[in-house]
């Protein structure tokens, strides 16, 4: 029995969003009489942090504290229309819609404040702490709460804004198949080290190194955690998970967590993550979104690492011990591509 080490590399250009009818997302923003703002979205936060990011984006655009923004994604029946949370589109699509809506709401908020302060709205700035004041004269000031109350109870204004992200529908050229389905790409490179046992066929990922370019990391801790969790899922897809282990035969398909295997907390590989920030021109504050791409490059990288380790080229996922052993048998044993 010999343990063979190998390294595999993969890189990815990952599209953010997809052009389904222009890929629209809508956002509605309005103020409440306490000076706080509600952002209504129909896209759902699956745990990736979309609510947190949209909250930051709204606060930054409105010029108010992030604590004063509530993001409501409660009900897609009654909320503004959205294509949904998929295709890694959340930060980019909803973020852009939130900026557009928040800009409109901000302009009404400044008009209301201007009327109270008897100044021109163009002369007003926000301090990000809940105050609106005349540029260069912080003492000529009104709180966002007072401005909201004045708008609602005296001026008869609605401090609200509408936003939508929409790109032109891209038709497919019937001759060439050419189209422009997306507006921006994120990028990543991943290097994994594996150990392959030539007696059991078992593949163990021992190290992951990755570099991700996701535009500006609007919330760096959320980005890092998404990449970390996603890489685990990629490792799981690469070497463990399958509902159809003998496809197209349905035999021995997993029916529960005893048969559907996933790496547990004792099966982790150290993962070193580098995040490169290159703000996207069309992204909200330059953000793109890690989304699904955090899992994808792990799969080809693991397959390449197995090839590097023992010379077996696996062409159907996951890389199970059985497939590795069959490959080793057919080529007459391990044929490492290099000595590490």
């Amino acid at each position: 029995m010999t343990i063979h080490r190998g390294r595999g590399f993969a890189c990815i250009n990952y599209p953010i969003g997809m052009n389904l009818g222009g890929d629209p997302s809508q956002a509605l923003v309005h103020s409440n009489p306490d000076g706080k703002f509600t952002v209504a979205l129909s896209a759902i936060d699956l745990g990736q942090g979309m609510k947190s990011v949209c909250r930051q984006i709204a606060a930054e655009t409105l010029g108010i504290p992030v604590e004063d923004v509530y993001v409501d994604t409660a009900d897609s029946d009654t909320g503004p229309h959205d294509m949904g949370s998929f295709a890694s589109r959340g930060t980019h699509r909803m973020g852009n819609a939130v900026i557009m809506a928040a800009k409109e709401a901000r302009s009404v908020m400044l008009e209301a404040a201007a009327e109270e302060l008897e100044v021109d709205p163009a002369d007003l700035v926000t301090d990000g702490k809940g105050n609106i004041h005349v540029k260069g004269a912080p003492s000529r000031s009104i709180t966002t709460m007072a401005a909201s109350q004045a708008a609602q109870f005296r001026q008869g204004r609605t401090i609200a804004g509408r936003g939508i992200f929409l790109i032109p529908l891209s038709d497919v050229d019937p001759e060439t198949g050419e189209m422009t389905p997306v507006t921006t790409f994120a990028h990543a490179a991943m290097l994994v080290t594996v150990e392959v046992c030539d007696e059991t066929g078992e593949v163990t990922v021992t190290d992951m190194q990755s570099a991700y370019e996701v535009g500006r990391a609007l919330n760096p801790k959320l980005v890092e955690q998404q990449l970390r969790g996603g890489a685990w899922m990629g490792m799981s897809h690469a070497a463990w998970e399958t509902t159809e282990p003998h496809y197209p035969s349905r035999d021995h398909g997993a029916v529960d967590f005893n048969g559907y295997l996933m790496p547990g907390p004792g099966d982790l590989a150290p993962h070193h993550i580098s995040i490169l920030e290159r703000p996207a021109a069309d992204g909200p504050f330059g953000g793109k979104g890690p989304g699904e791409m955090c899992a994808n490059p792990v799969l080809p990288a693991v397959v390449n690492a197995v090839f590097d380790a023992v010379g077996v080229r696996i062409d159907a996922l996951p890389v199970t011990p059985e497939k590795v052993l069959r490959g080793l048998k057919s080529q007459g044993g391990a044929k490492p591509r290099q000595r590490l």
Partner: peptide
């Protein structure tokens, strides 16, 4: 925690 499955985090933060 080996009897507890997590789908999102990759366990390391836990």
């Amino acid at each position: 925690i080996s009897g507890n499955i997590c789908r999102c985090t990759g366990y390391e933060p836990i």
